[in-house]
């Protein structure tokens, strides 16, 4: 029994220590972020390209099919009530408020997050971060902050593109496949979806962007500098980000309803 309590105590202590270190790490990134945005904006732009532009294909293809599925489900269910004109609205709400930010964040974690973690982990394993320290260059500022900011900036843009392409997918299914009136499809969206709904989606995508990028750079920076260590860190990035995104999604939705 005593051993059990000791194990629980050790686990809680370790969790609190890691959580504290994680928060301090976040503060370090925030402290260097304004300076990096002003003095080395080129590095941030490069990371927006790496995290954002290079994720475009997977985001657009996924958005198209998710929008298509929403179109199928929306038409199939709403036609039972002769409300198929609302297919676009159902798709728009689903995409803008929920699926756009959430699925984009999950895909971002799988594509860009893992790339960030493994890149930073390998830089650590091959002494590149130590070499920077020896060149009197702070690796947190030079390597981690641009990658973190790149992810934070890229995420809302990707979520917007996901939602836009998703709406196109819903249009293809609803209007082109099932013959919903194109005017009704888009006009219902225009009349029903409000700016606050879009703001909720934008807010979620920013929060998810911060969470996904922060977890990715944290895991990379703290990876054990071996092949196995970097592999494990990469896996943790995906798992922790997925859980964090879903938990934050619930909390934000509950707060905004």
């Amino acid at each position: 029994m005593t051993a059990l309590f000791r194990e629980i105590y050790n686990a809680v202590t370790e969790f609190l220590r890691t959580f504290g270190a994680f928060q301090l790490f976040f503060l370090r990134l925030l402290r260097h972020s304004p300076g990096m945005l002003v003095s080395r904006f080129d590095l941030v732009v490069m990371q927006v390209f790496n995290s954002g532009a290079l994720s475009l294909v997977i985001i657009m293809v996924s958005g198209l099919f998710v929008g298509g599925v929403l179109g199928l489900q929306g038409y199939s269910n709403l036609s039972r009530f002769n409300a198929e004109d609302w297919t676009g609205v159902a798709a728009a709400f689903g995409l803008v408020k929920e699926l756009g930010p959430v699925i984009t964040a999950l895909l971002f974690a799988g594509r860009a997050g893992t790339a960030l973690t493994s890149e930073i982990g390998l830089m650590k394993a091959t002494d590149q971060l130590s070499a920077m320290e020896m060149m009197a260059v702070n690796p947190v500022r030079r390597v981690l902050v641009p990658r973190f900011l790149g992810g934070v900036i890229a995420m809302p843009l990707l979520a917007a593109i996901f939602s836009a392409v998703g709406m196109f997918g819903a249009h293809l299914v609803g209007v082109e496949m099932f013959g919903v009136d194109v005017g009704s499809f888009w006009q219902q969206i225009q009349l029903t979806v409000e700016l606050d709904d879009v703001k909720e989606g934008i807010f979620k995508s920013i929060v998810f962007g911060v969470a996904a990028s922060l977890i990715a750079v944290w895991e990379g920076y703290n990876a054990i500098p071996t092949a196995e260590g970097v592999g494990r860190a990469t896996t943790r990035t995906v798992v922790i980000t997925a859980i964090a995104v879903l938990v934050f999604d619930f909390m934000i939705t509950a707060a905004m309803i």
């Binding site: 002494d127 130590s130 070499a131 920077m132 320290e133 020896m134 260059v137």
Partner: peptide
């Protein structure tokens, strides 16, 4: 103080996303 040091790491520790010129120009 570290600006007064130069260090050659065992594996070189070159920055893999930069070419040779940019690696040397980095500091």
């Amino acid at each position: 103080l570290r600006q007064r040091f130069g260090m050659l790491f065992q594996n070189g520790a070159l920055l893999t996303d930069l070419n040779v010129f940019e690696n040397v120009a980095f500091p």
